Simulated scan of single mutants.
Amino acid sequence: MHQTEEEHLIEMINQIAVNNISAGDDSAVADVIAGHVKKFWPRRMKTMLNDCIVQGGSQLHPAALLAGKKLFSLDAQ
């Protein structure tokens, strides 16, 4: 079964979250994820992530969702 580009993006960012869980709590992990996305992801992928978050981000790891909210200043708390 083939993944959509959005499904692949969600899988990638969730994997980044899982791989960095040792960074601490969700906020600390979110900082690592946000730094990675900011540094390595092209604008198109960032836009797709933003769209996913605006739609609720229910498939995202909690730290990945928080990272996106921090990146896009979407009521990160």
Rank of each mutant, 00 (worst) to 15 (best):
H2F: 07
T4Y: 04
T4L: 06
E5S: 14
E5K: 06
E6T: 15
E7Y: 01
L9M: 14
I10K: 07
M12T: 15
I13H: 09
I13Q: 07
Q15E: 11
I16L: 12
A17L: 11
A17M: 13
A17Q: 07
N20D: 06
I21W: 08
I21M: 12
I21V: 10
I21L: 13
A23S: 08
G24L: 03
G24D: 12
G24W: 09
G24Q: 12
G24V: 09
D25W: 09
D25C: 07
D26K: 00
D26G: 00
S27D: 13
S27R: 09
S27A: 15
A28I: 05
A30R: 01
D31L: 02
V32A: 02
V32T: 05
A34Q: 05
A34V: 02
G35L: 00
G35N: 10
G35V: 03
H36W: 12
V37C: 02
V37G: 03
K38M: 06
K38R: 09
K39T: 14
F40Q: 10
F40Y: 12
P42F: 04
P42G: 05
P42C: 03
R43I: 11
R44F: 09
K46P: 01
K46S: 00
T47W: 06
T47C: 06
L49W: 00
N50C: 12
D51I: 02
I53T: 01
V54L: 15
V54W: 08
Q55Y: 12
G56V: 01
G56S: 05
G57Q: 02
G57V: 03
Q59P: 01
Q59E: 13
L60G: 01
H61S: 08
P62F: 06
A63H: 04
A63Q: 11
A64K: 00
L65C: 07
L65D: 13
A67H: 07
G68S: 04
G68Y: 00
K69Q: 09
K70D: 05
K70Q: 04
L71G: 08
L71N: 05
F72A: 04
S73Y: 01
S73W: 04
L74I: 13
L74K: 02
D75K: 14
D75N: 13
D75Y: 11
A76N: 07
A76V: 13
A76P: 12
Q77L: 15
